[in-house]
Design a protein around this nucleic acid. Structure first.
Lengths: 319, 319
DNA sequence: GTGAAAGCGCTAACAA
DNA sequence: TTGTTAGCGCTTTCAC
């Protein structure tokens, strides 16, 4: 910076004013500084700037499980939006483990991120981690939530379930069952609860884990317990794919006797033949809202932003 | 830090020495400092440290396409290894676009990452980006490569193809064809070249893009042009899944008349029935090697590290 | 509008 | 072994 100042014949203060664009200077000075900087290949050192401004212009993101295909899509949406705001993304993976999640949060806080985005692993066991972090910086819970002490940006799962049930009913399917996964995942829990409240026979719910095999097993179990079932609403796409596979193995053509619908609209549902209907989260809008909360310098009251999902209708529910 | 020093009755230098662990102090001082720090909830400010040490202890990773399921696995392996070394991960996505890749590299360099890991989008069009970046910091090309001026950590694709052909031959399949994707992707290109060199009829190669649909189309085309084909070696799993789907649609049971094998061993191949054989990259070892090169402070000569892949044999090639 | 100077929080060189 | 001090690169008062 000194070199640039010398070459431009101004003080380092003016160089800073020009290059950071945070203050007015005469056009003459601005031009000389820009020329000098370009000539010397000078680029502002963000570390010095961060120290001075007490802001790293970096946001941390702790995803519950990066290998779950929904999270890369979410990560991409966030990274995109952050880049648009000139913010960096420090990523950490909790690997579905609350202890690792706590570690990851601590590591990112130690790096002085300006804000922290988290998709909590567990409704109950992530609560303290989130609450404590939110005393140190702005925390935005994304997709999932665990604490009322931090912002939450997610999808309106109740409305999504309602839309699914309407869609199924419109196709004459009035005897759905719900294949859930771990109810400690807030999204799964909300979907299950909404189903219980809204479905014709809301008690037809099976709960297992987040896996293809569980989808297979649950299909057999559901059709055994409730033989008249004409639709299986799944807590996520991986389960839905397992369900679809099992139905095919049992000789059903989809939708045929049983319609199938998943959640999150990951690429998985496109790999099935026929493709499986799924609710898509509006990731771009969610990312924009989350980053706005994260980048907002003023202290705002805790927000809870719910976006509507969009049911992607495919042959698994509407031939 | 001043508060900690005062409370412990020592200088800030001693606080630094204790908390950074980079210098010897008496146990008495160390204990008083640690107590004081804990009492005050003090945590070293990494920004100040970075400025002083001229090192951010952070590594940048530019992935070619985070929504391609191979890259989350790679990202996870890297993040894991970096965390083990106390290093942070700044992530950026190139979205399969060389212009965005160049931007991403520039943004991470501006943030003064200690090293840059990149999976180049294109063998030819990413070359300048990589070469120029490697003049500014340590660059490690991961999985794919584009420039000889930076390290490369990847899989031995030639050997992998050789293993695949041996495996197929052992099961009596001696008339394979290769379904490639974009040869600008270095891995795809190497796999294709090895096939051409090693396969019984190395000219039986189709080249398309990286998609499910191309897998479907290519299957039809391959069986039309070379009706005796008894195995389809695919440049990646997504193509392999498309191939498997198409074979099923054509009424073949896998492996039956045509065996199928993919690359990268992503979760996609498990979603097929039956599961599809695939070559797994040794991600943990590759990540360890890449991070070692990235974290190594001494200037080492350009390295090119190839790890052997492991063929995961499944019913699509061995019933 | 511009420059001089202070200071963000840290660590290393130097002195004691 | 420990303390004093300078300085990493930046931005922002404050004085002009």
């Amino acid at each position: 910076m000194h070199d640039v100042a010398r070459l431009a014949g101004v003080s380092t203060a003016s160089v800073s004013r020009v290059l950071s664009g945070r203050r007015r200077v005469t056009e003459d000075v601005a031009e000389r500084v820009r020329d000098a900087a370009e000539h010397l290949g000078y680029e502002v050192n963000t570390v010095g700037r961060s120290l001075r401004l007490q802001s790293t212009e970096t946001v941390g993101l702790v995803v519950a499980d990066i290998t779950n295909p929904f999270f890369p899509s979410l990560t991409k949406a966030i990274e995109d939006e952050l880049a648009r705001h000139g913010l960096g993304l420090l990523l950490a993976d909790a690997a579905n483990d609350v202890a690792r999640e706590r570690d990851a949060v601590a590591r990112l806080l130690a790096r002085r991120v300006d804000a922290l985005l988290v998709t909590p692993v567990s409704r109950s066991k992530s609560r303290r981690t989130i609450a404590e972090a939110s005393e140190r910086t702005t925390v935005v819970q994304l997709d999932r939530h665990a604490s009322a002490k931090a912002h939450y940006v997610g999808m309106d799962n109740g409305r999504a379930i309602s839309d699914v049930l309407d869609h199924l009913a419109a196709h004459g399917r009035t005897r759905p069952a719900f294949i859930g996964s771990d109810p400690e995942i807030s999204t799964t829990w909300e979907r299950q609860r909404a189903f219980t409240r809204l479905a014709p026979r809301g008690d037809r719910v099976l709960v297992g884990d987040f896996s293809l095999d569980w989808g297979r097993t649950a299909t057999v179990e559901a059709l055994r317990r409730w033989p008249a079932t004409d639709a299986l609403v799944c807590a996520d796409d991986l389960i839905a794919v397992g369900v679809a596979e099992q139905l095919r193995a049992m000789g059903h053509t989809m939708p045929g006797r049983v319609a199938v619908v998943g959640f999150d609209d990951t690429m998985l549902v496109h790999l099935q033949t026929p493709p499986v209907s799924s609710i898509r989260q509006p990731l771009a809008e969610m990312a924009a809202a989350a980053v706005e909360l994260a980048a907002g310098h003023e202290q705002v009251p805790i927000r809870r932003l719910l976006f509507p999902g969009v049911l992607q209708v495919r042959p698994s529910t509407a031939p």
